[in-house]
Design a binder for these strands. Structure first.
Lengths: 217, 217
DNA sequence: CTGCATTTTGACCAAGTAGTCAAGTTTTTG
DNA sequence: CAAAAACTTGACTACTTGGTCAAAATGCAG
């Protein structure tokens, strides 16, 4: 694009003012709360604006379309959500690496349940806004880690398991505690809020999965 | 209210005509498709009416409110969805019973993914329409089966696992294939549709969970 | 066939909601 | 400190959508 040009020649000037930074953050934080609770269609711009403490036209000054807020939010959070998977170290001890991964995921489910619900809702409805991301970024990453796990199996360091199904099981189980929180609470009652609950959950999940894939024989 | 009365005195006459039966079925079938795809708020009455092949006012003749269709649908499907859990036999062999349960759940995820998604969406959004059901029917049933599993553990027939977390893991893992179908497809591609896929899934899930809870030592 | 009950629908209404706009206010900058 | 740029908002529009209604069409019992 622009070659040369004077100082002032701003073409796609991405300069963000202090106020912009503050308000975009305010909006996105509010939007995460609302979208994750009510879904895309169930959320109104007015709700987000109120939660963010500004008028609707003002909000629309920063994000001209409702879709923009939603997509920005998904993009912002997806990377963070996937990060733990990328950290699985092919050179580390298999059981230790998977223990670390599962623990991280359970922690995230507890500290960022809204993010989990935002994705769950999006995927449940066919992932209209992120199907590209799924095939272009998620799949390659999963393929890579699946290859690592398959190698571990080949080396006899893990029982023979299909790596993809193992990854799905870890996702499903850990995110269940965020996505189905109401159900978990309806069944386990007051235990859920209590201090040691997360540790107890981690212990149970780790115990089953790790023993399920530990080499036998 | 009215006691006695002649033959013709119909009070709360639940007589359903042939046409009523046909049309209510038509509506509910259409509604399951649409609600499970777009959620409650994301679904319009017009969409359901079109899919059911009738006019909107006609649909509203059978179900005066959108809510009515939704709630009827949930009630109709919940019982069926929970049935396999009730079948776990306290007197049977633990591993065999759980193998049967998991297999049934995986089959249901494949044959009725819409039902799974309908619940997932409802629970994800805080279960506004079924929170009563969760505490009054689901919890007691789960408590009962958890007690059975706990007894099995006590008898040394299973490794020491928390029964609630085990049940959650089974739900999460099996329903994942229905609820997150797009994601599974994005990652595993054409394999998903292929004949043996369900069996391969069942094999992987059973292998990890059953080995994870088999008594050790 | 006839009259009553059931079913069906076009036209309509009211509420809710995404997005616009022009006019004001505040912040930044030369 | 003045002018420009950035920001803010009340009032409004266009459209979607849940639900109504009265009148027409159909089904059915005697």
């Amino acid at each position: 694009m622009a070659r040369a040009g004077k100082d002032k020649l701003k073409e796609a000037p991405e300069k963000t003012t202090r106020i912009q930074e503050i308000n975009r953050r305010l909006i996105l934080d509010a939007a995460l709360d609302i979208f994750s609770t009510y879904g895309f269609r169930g959320t109104t711009i007015d709700q987000i604006a109120e939660r963010a403490g500004m008028s609707k036209p003002n909000l629309l000054y920063y994000f001209p379309r409702k879709q923009n807020i939603y997509v920005t939010l998904l993009e912002e959070t997806l990377a963070e959500w996937l990060a733990p998977l990328a950290e699985i170290d092919a050179e580390g001890d298999p059981i230790e690496q998977l223990r670390k991964y599962i623990t991280l995921k359970i922690n995230m489910s507890e500290t960022h349940p809204e993010a989990s619900r935002l994705f769950a809702n999006e995927v449940l409805h066919g992932a209209p806004a992120i199907s590209d991301f799924l095939t272009k970024h998620l799949k390659p990453l999963v393929d890579e880690k699946a290859a690592v796990i398959r190698r571990w199996v080949g080396e006899g360091k893990l029982a023979p398991v299909d790596p993809y199904h193992l990854i799905f099981m870890i996702w499903a189980t850990t995110q269940h505690y965020a996505d189905f929180d109401v159900q978990v609470r309806a069944i386990m009652g007051s235990q859920v809020g209590r201090p040691g609950f997360k540790e107890q959950t981690a212990q149970a999940v780790l115990s089953i999965i790790l023993n399920g894939i530990r080499p036998r024989g």
